[in-house]
């Protein structure tokens, strides 16, 4: 074997370490730059009318995105109402009833694959199922699309969290004569509470910033939300429409809306990571 002099090896080692530190710094710098730019450009848009008024035509100034804020909240809540219970139930099956079976192995595989399917494809799918046949873009379709995106994420993380619950807890609950579903809901869930909360919060944060699926489902609207069977205003599609428009006052509003979404998503993320720290990690 060829022997290399020690100093050459140490120089290579030091330079790799240096590059490694630099790469991490690049990552942090990009994050800081993005946050800084969004805050710096978005803060100017935040006035009272921004939060309380309907969008104004370009050049009229003083428009707001109140309808989009409400729309995003409604769609996200509705999506969570569908996605969270279904995801949790699937997670329960994987971690409890179907533990270590061939069926659940296949399911886990499929869930991992769905997690990786681009959200735009989910949007396209919901378009073909809920928009095209009914003839109108709708808030409901948007919520369903977001729920489908949430489902596998919640199922997989719930499964991981439930598997960490010690078996002795389940056994002692069984010994009290509880049915399995009570054991799961009032013993296993309680133990895994903080982990599950983190998982759910992160999933909600993730879908609340989704744009692509909403383009095909909820679309957007300039008006207050009267019915969810109609195109429904939402922040992310508003950002998209306004940002690519040539009007500077619309672009300004897009930055304001971006700031709003970013603050929401990052707050939930940091909050979930710091406050609900899973105790078994």
């Amino acid at each position: 074997m060829r022997l290399r002099p020690m100093y050459a090896r140490q120089i290579v080692d030091m330079s790799v370490k240096l590059i490694s530190v630099l790469s991490s710094l690049i990552g942090i710098c990009v994050l800081v730059l993005i946050i800084y730019e969004v805050i710096a450009r978005g803060i100017a848009a935040c006035s009272l009318s921004f939060f309380t008024e309907l969008p104004a035509p370009p050049g009229m100034g003083e428009g707001g995105v109140a309808n989009a804020i409400i729309g995003t909240l409604i769609i996200t809540v509705l999506a969570s109402l569908i996605g969270v219970p279904v995801g949790l139930l699937a997670g329960i099956f994987l971690a409890e009833f179907g533990k270590d079976t061939k069926f659940s192995e296949v399911t886990i595989f499929i869930l991992n694959v769905i997690i990786g399917i681009p959200s735009i494809i989910i949007g396209l799918f919901v378009y073909t199922v809920l928009v095209k046949p009914f003839g109108s873009f709708s808030g409901y379709a948007g919520a369903v699309a977001l729920a489908i995106i949430m489902l596998p994420v919640i199922a997989r993380t719930a499964q991981d969290m439930l598997l960490l619950v010690p078996n002795s807890l389940r056994e002692s609950a069984f010994a009290l004569g509880m049915p399995y579903w009570r054991v799961i809901l009032s013993v296993v869930f309680r133990y895994a509470r903080s982990g599950l909360t983190t998982a759910i919060l992160l999933a909600i944060a993730r879908v609340s910033g989704e744009t692509a699926p909403l383009l095909f489902t909820a679309l957007n609207s300039q008006y207050w939300i009267e019915s969810l069977t109609q195109p429904t205003a939402n922040l992310t599609v508003t950002i998209y429409n306004y940002a690519i428009s040539p009007y500077t006052d619309w672009q300004q509003i897009a930055w304001g809306a971006s700031l709003l979404i970013m603050i929401g998503v990052l707050t939930v993320n940091i909050f979930a990571r710091l406050v609900f720290k899973p105790k078994f990690r």
């Binding site: 994050l31 730059l33 993005i34 730019e37 969004v38 992160l202 944060a205 993730r206 910033g209 989704e210 744009t211 692509a212 992310t236 950002i239 998209y240 940002a243 897009a254 930055w255 971006s258 979404i261 970013m262 998503v265 990052l266 993320n269």
Partner: peptide, 10 residues
């Protein structure tokens, strides 16, 4: 965690 639309704007 940053939504992709914000990457787009940026």
């Amino acid at each position: 965690a940053i939504p992709s639309i914000i990457y787009g704007m940026w």
